[in-house]
Simulated scan of single mutants.
Amino acid sequence: MKKLVNNPVNVVDEMVEGYVRAHPDYIKQLSSNNRALVTVRETKQNKVGILIGGGSGHEPGFMGYVGEGMADGVAVGNIFSSPSPDPILEVTKSINKESGVVYLYGNYAGDVMNFGMAAEMADLEEDIEVGMAIATDDVASAPKEEKEKRRGIAGELFIYKAAGAAADFGCNLEEVVRIARKANDHTWSMGVGTSPCYHPQTGKPSFEIGDDEMEIGLGHHGEPGLEKGPLETADKLADRLLNDILIDSGITKGDEVAVLVNGLGSTPKMDLYIVYRRVEQILSEQGIKIYCSYVGDYITSLEMGGCSVTLMKLDDELTKVMDHPVNCPMFVQK
């Protein structure tokens, strides 16, 4: 393990400090909690607040998506660990504009517990109404009929975008939650891991895998996938990931989709574009139209090797939210 850190115990706090110093025109740290970050822009009164968050190690998620058109604040947890309720509540109080706040997070036990506790505290202590939309886009993590048990992975990006746009459009809390949940219900992802990442505080790999192996369906924290096997070509890998997504989603000829090919931290963009090339070929052959596409590192896992593919099935409403301009440090769409 080789990392550019000081004391491993301080990596998250030093990262947050560096991020805030690097982007003072976008984000600021609340004095009440150093893991609570909010936008510096002046948001409209009565706009629904959008709060995202999760464990560190997924950069540019989640801090990178605080800005115009997406989130108003973020609560930062330790590496691969949920933020505690305290920073979540502090962000909630800061971004509330009298119309409530929507929490967006992945379907992990710690996040479900801590965001749920923060929502109760916001209601009881601050009289702030909170809505929630939980990402469950990972098709490899549970059967189709048990979608509510699935993990949230890179598809969370599309949920942030949908909710952020809905809030900007002036939708009320109920409508923002509905659109965010609809985005989740129309989004499917599947990934592959080719090499582990190393936790800076322990120096241990997130999972074990041979130099000539890959693991299909691996989670972003190293959770077991569907199967481990020999390393395949980019085309064969894309065929497998996309085939499972298309079967699960029912996306078919005539449908229109948004596509994300997401790197997990150490996969070169060269590789990601080769994967995207094959994804585009398959969708084109099947008569599925790509409306917009994103290729790069959007939600990572430290320096894990591998990638994921995400499809969102669009309709008029979801196309509108995907078109909405975004200006964040790590994501700009005009």
Score class of each variant (00 low, 15 high):
G225L: 13
H220A: 07
M330Q: 10
G203W: 11
G54F: 01
T136M: 13
H199V: 03
V326D: 13
E227D: 13
L260R: 08
K93S: 05
A118R: 03
A122L: 05
T187P: 10
E174K: 12
E145V: 09
P60Q: 04
M304S: 05
T202M: 14
M330I: 09
E148W: 10
F169E: 07
E68L: 15
I282C: 06
V295M: 02
K334H: 15
G53W: 06
N107A: 14
G100R: 07
P224W: 15
D72W: 04
A75H: 01
H221W: 07
T252K: 06
A71G: 12
K147W: 14
V66S: 06
H23Y: 15
T300Q: 12
I134Q: 03
D211Y: 12
G203K: 03
D255W: 06
Q29M: 13
V102Y: 04
L237F: 05
S94K: 07
N107H: 11
M15E: 08
M121E: 11
V5D: 03
E42I: 05
P85K: 13
S84F: 14
G203I: 12
L318T: 00
L264F: 13
A119S: 15
R277M: 09
G210I: 05
T187C: 09
G250R: 08
L37H: 06
V279W: 00
P196K: 12
S308D: 01
N262K: 02
G57W: 01
Q286Y: 10
K147V: 07
G265A: 04
R150S: 08
C328T: 00
S31G: 07
D244G: 03
F158W: 10
G110T: 13
V192Q: 01
N96F: 12
A135N: 04
I209E: 00
T194W: 04
D211L: 09
A119Q: 12
C171H: 10
I216L: 15
G49N: 05
H186K: 08
G49D: 01
V20F: 08
Y26H: 10
D123P: 04
V309R: 04
I274M: 13
G61D: 06
S81Q: 10
V192A: 10
N34R: 11
N172A: 05
G170A: 02
T194R: 02
T300R: 13
